[in-house]
């Protein structure tokens, strides 16, 4: 009887592994590196703010936003108007878990770059990062501009995001094979894959206390001004 249960559990476990395998992120650190893209591992966000009650060492307050310049990998916590309204950053990581990512768009009254020179645009493509080889024409980028990428389907049905989130579990689950095509603050095309918000980029997090937010993401900026986003 006991053995039966053990065999049963073992079989179940194997079935689970087999059936879930294709949904899992099999990427390892090494194969995010394609030789031309920039891969950022575990970039710390505002790790002192908390999404839930009573998490030790964390404060109950809104997350402080940070700003990131793709070229040069520069992170800034300077939320002054002078910095926000400048082309010194391309994407801002804001709100809960710092996971609401805005592009630097001077024309978006709800974005952090409002009133500045930023030319930022962002669209989503449901395709793996390496398969996104050309950016759409600028008219299409403008027509489908999401302005931000965060919680998928929020606040409106058409707000395509990069993770699923539940206010019950407070877990942010990244959406696989979704790539964002951007225009940087200076108007260069880029592609971006937001990979994880949890430290160490674990394949699946079930623990609310897993250290967060620590961002893993990769991107490629086409510096020659063309729409070519081909990466190996």
């Amino acid at each position: 009887m006991r053995y039966t249960i053990h065999i049963c559990l073992l079989t179940t476990l194997m079935l689970t592994i087999a059936s879930c395998k294709k949904d899992e992120n099999n990427d390892t650190k090494t194969n995010y590196e394609d030789g031309v893209s920039t891969v950022i591992y575990d970039l710390a966000g505002d790790t002192e703010a908390s999404v839930a009650d009573g998490v030790e060492g964390k404060e109950r307050r809104p997350f402080k936003p940070f700003y990131f310049k793709l070229r040069g990998k520069l992170q800034s916590w300077d939320s002054t108007a002078a910095n926000r309204k400048s082309a010194s950053w391309d994407i801002a990581f804001t709100d809960v878990y710092n996971a609401l990512v805005y592009v630097n768009d001077g024309s978006n009254p709800n974005g952090p770059g409002y009133g500045g020179p930023g030319k930022g645009l962002i669209i989503a493509v449901d395709s793996p990062y390496s398969k996104v080889t050309t950016a759409p024409a600028v008219e299409d980028m403008k027509a489908y501009n999401l302005k931000f990428a965060g919680w998928d389907g929020y606040p409106q049905v058409y707000n395509t995001g990069w993770y699923f989130y539940s206010l019950t579990t407070h877990l942010a689950i990244p959406i696989k094979n979704r790539t964002f095509v951007l225009m940087t603050a200076e108007g260069k095309y880029a592609k971006l894959e937001l990979i994880n918000v949890y430290q160490g980029n674990p394949p699946a997090v079930t623990d609310l206390y897993w250290p967060a937010p620590y961002f893993t993401f990769r991107y490629y900026v086409q510096e020659d001004g063309s729409r070519n986003l081909r990466t190996p």
Binding site: C8, L9, T12, L13, C20, K22, D23
Partner: peptide, 9 residues
């Protein structure tokens, strides 16, 4: 359990 596991796919 097995069905649950399969459903996971």
């Amino acid at each position: 359990l097995a069905m649950f596991a399969i459903a996971c796919s």
